[in-house]
Nucleic acid binder design. Structure first.
Lengths: 372, 372
DNA sequence: TTGTAGGCGTTATCAG
DNA sequence: CTGATAACGCCTACAA
C-alpha cells in the first residue's frame, strides 16, 4: 500500500537501472506538475501508458482484470488526467469562452447557469469574463480567451468594436450572440427581439384604450437593451396614432430613478399625466409602486404599471405586477447547445442558426387601465 | 502582404523542399489547431521559434530590429500564444478554480465579480463551477478542476465530503474557503461568522425589550448558512433568559414561505405571537411585509421584522427594512487576493490566513419594537 | 488486448 | 543576441 502522496521521481521507463554509465547528456529536469501522470500509474500497474490512456478513453478495449487493477491504482493515487495535455494532444474538447455584460445581474446569472449546465454535460469548460457593458472590455476579454484557443465563443451583444469583429472572424470557430436576435448578423443568434417585446408591452396598454403611455428608463445608458424595447414601444405607439413618450431618469440606480419619475409625474397637471408606465425593469417598477402612495398616486387606478424581468417579488406587491418573463436559463442553455451541435458537425461551417427564445407577457393587476 | 487568413500547412522547417524522396514513414497528420503557431510566425520572420517565444517572455533579449519585425508579423497574423501549450510547458499557468453554491443568487454573483476583477488584474484565469449546495456536486467540480492543474482553489463552504478533503489535501495548492470564517480549518478563510451575525440580530431585538423573537427560515435546508445564523440567535436568546423560537417553512420558495409564516402567526393567540421575526433573507422579509396587511398584521407595530442581505428594495418598503449588509464583492476580491499572495510567496506553505469581512447591521424602521 | 513511436505548441536549457 | 534540442502529459496511428 503506497501511502506517500507524491509520485516518485520518474525514470525514463525504458532505461534500466544501469548506474549512469556515461550519463547521456541528461538535460536538467524541467519543472513538472508534481502530480501523478499516466506514466506513474502505468508503472505502478506494470503496463504501458497507452493502456492507462485507453482505460479512460476506451475502457472496453482494456481487459477486465487490468481494468480492475487500474481502477484500484487510480483510486489509491487520486490520479486525474491532465486536461491541459489532453487538449493539446487532441485539439478536442476543451474550452468555450463567454463574455457577459454583468455577472451580477440575476438575469445574466441565470444565463450563466444555463451555459454551465450544458457545458458540463458535454465536458466543455466554460471560461467567463465580465465586460461591464463596455466594448473595450469585451475586446480585452476576447483577446485573453483567444490565447486559450477556445472551441467556441458566446457573446451577449451583437454590436462590437471594429477590431473585435475582425478578431472573431479570424478565430474561425462557432460564435454565438445571445440575448438579442437581430437580422443580418454572420453569427449564430439566440434570444428574443427586444423590439417585439416593446411592441407587445405597448399593445397591452393600447388595447385597453390608454392614450398617454410612457416608457421609463433608468439612467444607465450602457445597456442598450431596454432602450431597444423603448424603440419597439415607440413604433407601436405611432402605428396607433399615439405620441411616444420615452422618459429617461438621470439616476442609474433603479430606486432613485423611480423617485425621479414619481416626482416628475406628480408635477404634471392631471390631464397630461401618463395613464400607464412601462418600465425598463421590474426593480424600477416595484420601487415605483411602493413609493407611489407617498406621491398621491395609486396603482393601477391613477397609474398603471408594467415591468420587465418577472422578479418573484412582483407577485407579492399590491397590486401584483404585470411584467415580461424572459428565459435567461434557456438562452444560456440553447447557446451552449448550438455550440455543442456546431462542434459535433465536424466544424462544417454551417450557416448561422437563429433560435428564438420567446418572452411571455405576464398580465397581472398592476396594468389594469381604469375605464374612466 | 499576406492576406490569406490561414497558416500554410507547415513543413518541418529543417526539411528542404525535397520532393518526398522515399517519404520517411510520415505519420498521418494529427489534428492541428488550425491557427498560427510560434513556428509559423518564426518562419515568416526568418528566425527560430525560440526567438518568437522570447519576444513574448523576455522582449529585452531580442534585438530591436527583430522586435519590430516580429511585432509587425504578429499584428498581421493575429498570432496569440497558445496558453494550453504554455501551461503544459511551464507547469505554472494561471488557472484558479472556484466552486460556487449558486451562481444565480445576486450575493454569490457579487462574489464572482470580486474574484474576476482581481483575477484579471493578475493574469489568472478563473474556472467556475456551480454546486447547487450539493456536496456530491462540489466533489465532482473539484475533480474536474483537478484535471486543469489549477494553481489554487476557492470554495464557498467549509464542510466537505470526506473524499473531497482528501482530494484537497493531495492537491498541494493554496485553498481558500470563503464566506464563512470558522476555526480549526487547515485552509485559508475569508468571510464572516454567521453565528455572530445571528447574535447581533437577536441582540438588536433583545436590547429593545422584546421577549418573543422568532427566527424564520425557508424550507431550503441545503444552504446551512442561515441555519447557522439561527444558532447564533438561539444562543443569544438563551443567554438573555429567553426561549429561542426557530421556525422553518415547508416551502423552499421565499414568497410561499412568507405566506406560511403569516398564516402560522395569524393562527396564534395574540399573547403568544412573536413580537419580532428575524428572516433568513431579505426576500422573505420583504414578501412578509408586503403580505402582512392581508393577514391583519402591521409592521413594525404588531410585528417587527429584520432581514439579511441588504436588497435595494428594502429601502423602498414601508417601513424600510432593517437588514444585515454583507460584502460579497469584498469576500470574492479578498479570496483571490489571498491566492495571489500565496502564489507570490514561492508557494511556501504559509500557515492558513484568516481574513474577516465584517457585516453591518443596517437598522431601519421595520425593526422598531413598539413600547406597549 | 497491449505496446511503440511520434507529435500537439510552448518553453527551459545549453551551445554558439 | 540567436538557435538546436528536449521535454511538459497526453493521445492517435500503427504494429505486434
Amino acid at each position: 500500500m503506497k501511502t506517500n502522496g507524491m509520485p516518485a521521481a520518474r525514470e525514463k521507463s525504458s532505461t534500466p537501472a544501469s548506474e549512469s554509465p556515461d550519463p547521456p547528456k541528461r538535460r536538467a529536469q524541467r519543472p513538472r506538475s508534481g502530480t501523478y501522470t499516466v506514466h506513474d500509474v502505468a508503472a505502478l500497474a506494470g503496463v504501458s501508458s497507452v493502456t492507462v490512456s485507453r482505460y479512460f478513453n476506451a475502457p472496453h478495449k482494456v481487459s477486465d482484470v487490468l481494468r480492475d487493477r487500474l481502477a484500484g491504482i487510480i483510486a489509491e493515487t487520486g490520479y486525474v488526467p491532465n486536461q491541459v495535455a489532453r487538449i493539446l494532444a487532441t485539439a478536442q474538447g476543451g474550452v468555450v469562452g463567454a463574455v457577459m455584460q454583468n455577472v451580477t445581474s440575476p438575469t445574466f446569472a441565470d444565463m450563466v447557469r444555463g451555459m454551465m449546465d450544458v457545458a458540463e454535460e458535454n465536458a466543455l469548460q466554460l471560461l467567463l469574463a465580465n465586460s461591464h457593458f463596455s466594448l473595450e472590455s469585451e475586446t480585452r476579454a476576447l483577446r485573453t480567451f483567444a490565447g486559450w484557443h477556445p472551441r467556441a465563443m458566446i457573446l451577449t451583444r451583437n454590436d462590437h468594436a471594429p477590431d473585435t469583429e475582425a478578431l472573431l472572424a479570424r478565430l474561425r470557430i462557432p460564435i454565438v450572440e445571445a440575448w438579442e436576435v437581430m437580422t443580418e448578423r454572420p453569427f449564430h443568434q439566440v434570444g428574443f427581439s427586444q423590439t417585439e417585446v416593446g411592441i407587445s408591452q405597448a399593445l397591452h396598454f393600447i388595447a385597453q384604450g390608454a392614450q398617454r403611455i410612457r416608457f421609463a428608463l433608468n439612467g444607465a445608458t450602457e445597456d442598450g437593451r431596454a432602450a431597444r424595447r423603448a424603440e419597439g414601444y415607440a413604433g407601436a405607439m405611432r402605428d396607433a396614432g399615439l405620441k411616444p413618450d420615452i422618459w429617461r431618469a438621470n439616476a442609474k440606480d433603479d430606486i432613485a430613478a423611480a423617485r425621479e419619475l414619481l416626482a416628475d409625474i406628480a408635477a404634471l397637471p392631471l390631464r397630461r399625466r401618463p395613464q400607464a408606465v412601462i418600465f425598463g425593469n421590474d426593480n424600477m417598477a416595484i420601487a415605483t409602486m411602493l413609493s407611489a402612495p407617498a406621491h398621491g398616486l395609486h396603482v393601477p387606478d391613477s397609474l398603471a404599471v408594467a415591468g420587465f424581468g418577472d422578479m418573484p417579488l412582483g407577485l407579492v406587491t399590491t397590486p401584483a405586477l404585470t411584467t415580461v418573463r424572459p428565459d435567461p436559463y434557456a438562452i444560456g442553455a440553447q447557446s451552449m447547445a448550438i455550440v455543442v451541435a456546431a462542434l459535433g458537425d465536424g466544424e462544417g461551417k454551417q450557416s448561422p442558426q437563429r433560435r428564438e427564445i420567446p418572452c411571455e407577457l405576464v398580465v397581472r393587476d398592476s396594468s389594469r387601465i381604469s375605464r374612466a
